[in-house]
Design a protein around this nucleic acid. Structure first.
Length: 487
RNA sequence: GGCCCCUUCGUCUAAUCGGUUAGGACACCAGCCUUUCAAGCUGGCAGCAGGGGUUCAAAUCCCCUAGGGGUCACCA
């Protein structure tokens, strides 16, 4: 039997790192097993679902390279892959349950139920359904259908016995059936609830392994009860540990960047995010940390997924990102930096071949010092514009001192003589200048760097000079000379 | 509150069947390198939640306690 897994997000928000990690584990498992990855959209919440979220989720998945074999933008033989398009399927199953008495209509209003819950809470009892509509006669049902505005359908849950979840990660987990009340399977708007739709779809889509977050573990027995009542197969479950925020609480917007989109905007590379997330809750064993996607696929196994929740740490993500930033093909990084440079208005929308080459050189030079694509853009401003800012404190310190102007003048004079304007020739000239002025090289380089870039730190000075070209170098030094007089 | 899950450095984790000076990575600190800042290299700091058992031997098996998380929705 070929492995079939699914990732089933609901389009009620952006894809956050917890969700992606679940998607990733599903994907790695499928690819490792030579199975199929199915993407299903659980959009039964009419109020909160939106097409905008659907699109960003799909875009995020594609950006990360987590492709799917069946699903939206793709289709497949077990569709449709949107739950809202599968209503007839659910209706058919509900009817079966209704006919056999395994489910029943409930006419209790939301207000009534809320009151009931409150009463139970006051008595210190668990909030459960009273069973008021459990045994209505056919006549009563017909009558209520006429008088009540709306109704739901509940599943008759056996009161005795236990339901055992066999989880690949957690082992056997046993639940007493008496802790469940008759839960709702069809809402008053006619849409199925999550547990119901999910159980049916997993079976109809021939899902073999349900890999999802641990928060669903407590829901699993309900789904198994549904499966049993419907006589459909129960998949193998694997509940992966949750990802928690640094304060140990459940992930939310107030914890800063949590969605894929935000990381993308920040200038995180997809492979860095994937690599980082793979390490959260899973380890290939040994000392492996940095892995290609192919290595992850071949090394992945659910047995090696841990049981305990993990807390995400931006610092490590950032470290991985800087690693990939430095080691990936420079033309690719150059390409990836383009939107960030555009956003800062350092380059225009269209580039000539020459522009591209220049961008690539700049990016290649700057990437050694930074951790994100955004930082590449921030660090390369002076390569694209004459209006870059000067660090005022450094200006005061280096241009304000006595003799500063003279040094700049000497540098200008020396550089003007350099021909051709290349690393070696410039280097030789500056070294000689240092000797003749009896100054350490740093006393020449630091003011020069400040004049050319506005900062005292950055890529290698000689590289900067060559890339900028003689003309701009001289021009900026002259500007600095003027600053000296003011300082 | 009931039920369920979990617990190795600050964080992510490793440790085939019980025997390890409990390993690695990020972060942090120091040194080296260096024409700045990084990177890189070397070294350092730091952990088996607590208590009972079982055993010649426990991070590892069992029990209890504590702590954390999840779930009990006409959300998924």
């Amino acid at each position: 039997m070929t492995v079939r897994v699914r990732f089933a997000p609901s389009p009620t928000g952006e894809l956050h790192i917890g969700g992606v990690r679940t998607a990733l584990f599903n994907w790695l498992f499928a690819r490792n097993q030579g199975g199929k990855m199915i993407l299903r959209i659980d959009d039964t919440d009419q109020q909160r679902s939106s097409d905008k979220f659907l699109q960003t989720i799909l875009d995020s998945m594609e950006w990360l390279g987590l492709d799917w074999d069946e699903g939206p933008r793709k289709d497949g033989e077990f569709g449709p892959y949107f739950q809202t398009q599968r209503l007839p399927i659910y209706q058919e199953e509900v009817q079966k349950l209704l006919d056999s008495g395994k489910a029943y209509y409930c006419f209790c209003s939301a207000e009534e139920l809320a009151k009931q819950k409150e009463r139970n809470a006051q008595k210190g009892l668990p909030p459960r359904y009273s069973g008021a509509c459990r045994n209505l006669s056919p006549q009563e049902i017909e009558e209520k259908k006429k008088t009540c505005r709306s109704f739901v359908i509940r599943l008759r849950v056996p009161e005795e016995g236990v339901t055992v979840v066999n989880d690949l990660i957690r082992g056997r987990v046993t639940f007493e059936n008496k802790i469940f009340d008759d839960f709702i399977i069809v809402k008053s708007d006619g849409f199925p609830t999550y547990n119901f739709a999910s159980a049916i779809d997993d079976a109809k889509m021939k899902i073999t392994h349900v890999i999802r977050a641990e928060e669903h573990l407590s829901n699993t027995p309900r789904q198994q009860i549904i499966c049993r009542q419907l006589g459909i197969p129960i998949p193998v479950y694997a509940h992966v540990p949750m990802i928690l925020a640094p304060d140990h609480s459940k992930l939310s917007k107030r914890h800063g960047a949590t969605s894929v989109q935000e990381y993308r905007d920040m200038g995180i590379l997809p492979e860095a995010l994937i690599n980082y997330l793979a390490l959260l809750g899973w380890s290939p064993g040994g000392d492996r940390e940095i892995m290609t996607i192919e290595e992850m696929i071949s090394l992945f196994s659910l047995e090696k997924v841990g049981k305990n929740a993990s807390i995400y740490d931006l610092k490590k993500l950032t470290w991985l990102n800087s690693h990939y930033l430095r080691t990936k093909e420079k033309s690719i990084i150059g390409e990836m930096a383009v939107p960030f440079l555009q956003k800062k208005k350092l380059i225009s929308g269209v580039q000539t071949e020459e522009d591209r080459k220049y961008i690539e050189k700049v990016v290649d030079l700057v990437r050694e010092k930074v951790k994100t694509l955004q930082e590449i853009a921030d660090a390369s401003e002076f390569f694209f514009s004459e209006n870059f800012p000067y660090d005022q404190a450094e200006v005061a310190k280096h241009f304000g001192r006595e003799g500063a102007e003279l040094v700049i003048k000497e540098i200008i004079k020396a550089l003007q003589e350099v021909e051709p304007f290349q690393k070696e020739t410039i280097n030789l000239k500056l070294k000689n200048l240092g000797k003749s002025l009896n100054l350490p090289l740093s006393k020449i380089n630091i003011p020069a760097r400040l004049a050319l870039t506005g900062r005292t730190m950055g890529p290698e000075l000689l590289e900067i000079m060559v890339l900028l070209g003689k003309e701009k170098v001289i021009e900026r030094l002259k500007k600095a000379e003027a600053l000296c007089q003011k300082a």
